[in-house]
């Protein structure tokens, strides 16, 4: 079970979650008691990690922000039902993951119903059928070189069952245990999926791995 403390990434580096003097659970208790400012503190802690997670999952900044905001709204109205036997980070990533998966399904339905979507899928390199998001990125500064764009696109083509743990582990820097909790999977299965996801990415990014960075 994940602890509600600052996390260290796989390499021992400090991850993006900020240092905390008040635990998430204490903040939640304050929100339950009507302290709106405490909810602001929760948002300030998690808005960037959740937005980044959703952006990497959807490869669409506007949708990522929209779903991130929706994530916090869901959290707010579900705080009374939240059980503190899980880390809050696990809880909020799980909500964000579910929203992201639901969004993917909506995209699929839209695509199947649209001739344009069918034609686009011919060129898609998805492992499973998945219409790519061809809209221009909202902020080109966020992905400032071709390499980053290719990596982002490659991640977006992974099946969700590999995409979520890869993003949580390698981009968000969550521990294997945290990832397992979010996915509701055992630790071994989680590690296996992360490994498999990396293998799929390697196949897509072979040219870039043998490039000047090597």
């Amino acid at each position: 079970m994940a602890l509600d403390t600052n996390e260290l990434g796989a390499s021992g580096e400090d991850v993006r979650l900020p240092a905390r003097t008040v635990s998430d659970h204490q903040l939640i208790e304050k929100v339950r008691n009507g302290d709106e400012a405490a909810f602001g503190e929760i948002m300030s802690r998690y808005k960037n990690p959740i937005t980044n997670f959703l952006y990497r999952f959807l490869n669409d900044y506007e949708e990522a922000v929209d779903l991130a905001q929706e994530t916090f709204v869901r959290v707010y109205f579900a705080l009374d039902r939240y059980h503190t036997n899980y880390a809050f980070s696990t809880y909020i990533y799980r909500i964000a993951s579910n929203l992201a998966i639901t969004e993917l399904r909506k995209r699929k339905r839209r695509s199947v119903l649209s001739l344009t979507g069918l034609f686009q899928s011919v060129d898609a390199e998805a492992v499973e059928f998945q219409p790519p998001d061809l809209r221009p990125l909202a902020d080109t500064e966020l992905v400032d070189d071709e390499r980053s764009r290719v990596i982002a696109s490659a991640i977006a083509t992974l099946p969700p069952k590999y995409r979520i743990p890869i993003i949580l582990r390698d981009i968000e820097g969550r521990s294997y245990e945290d990832v397992a909790d979010v996915m509701r999977l055992g630790l071994g299965t989680t590690k296996s999926r992360i490994s498999r996801g990396r293998g799929l990415l390697k196949e897509k990014l072979t040219g870039y791995m043998q490039g000047p960075n090597e």
């Binding site: 990434g9 960037n48 966020l142 982002a152 991640i155 993003i167 981009i171 990415l201 990014l205 791995m209």
Partner: peptide, 12 residues
């Protein structure tokens, strides 16, 4: 290598 590439992505 993949893990490093992913970790090197700029966070939004």
């Amino acid at each position: 290598e993949i893990s490093r590439m992913l970790a090197g992505l700029k966070a939004v």
